[in-house]
């Protein structure tokens, strides 16, 4: 193995964080659009869903997130990278307060603290590197 754990994380951690930024942006746009129109489980709902401009932009943003995520996923263990997606919750909580005026109560703040603490603990795991990366080195 030629790359140490710290170099791997330093060089590729963007591929975990950038997808989160893109997908949170996409989610908010989607929620905004879903608030405006009722999406139903029939043909009309399907057409409505895939022709609305905010939904198309949110799809594109989520696709970008997916492409970047692919790179991150190839570098890190699934059980290491995946929990970082829970940062989405934190971002969504902050955003739903900012953009949709939903309440952020004390209990939700406590929940955020638990999630962030969990991520800090996971980030300390020595098992971060994907098997494929180890083989290639």
């Amino acid at each position: 193995m030629t790359t140490s754990k710290s170099t791997l994380i330093k060089n590729h951690i963007f591929f975990i964080f950038l997808p989160i930024v893109f997908s949170v942006f996409g989610e908010f746009l989607l929620k905004f659009a879903a608030n405006e129109t009722a999406i139903t489980p029939d043909k009309a709902g399907l057409i409505l869903f895939f022709t609305s401009p905010p939904i198309i932009i949110s799809v594109l943003s989520i696709v970008c997130a997916g492409l970047l995520w692919v790179v991150g996923l190839s570098k890190f263990e699934l059980s290491y990278a995946y929990p970082f997606l829970s940062l989405n919750y934190v971002a969504i909580l902050v955003g739903s307060r900012l953009f949709f005026g939903e309440q952020v109560t004390l209990t939700r703040l406590v929940a955020m603290v638990f999630i962030i603490a969990g991520l800090i603990v996971i980030s300390r795991s020595p098992y971060s590197e994907s098997e494929g990366v180890k083989d290639a080195n």
């Binding site: 290491y80 929940a111 999630i115 969990g118 800090i120």
Partner: peptide, 27 residues
């Protein structure tokens, strides 16, 4: 990840996951 990709699930990952799940349950 463990079942299909033989990943290591160590104490850090379990404890971290526990904290995250607990936080999510509160949410």
């Amino acid at each position: 990840g463990k079942v299909f990709f033989q990943e290591q699930l160590d104490t850090y990952k379990w404890v971290g996951m526990g904290l995250i799940s607990f936080g999510s349950l509160i949410l």
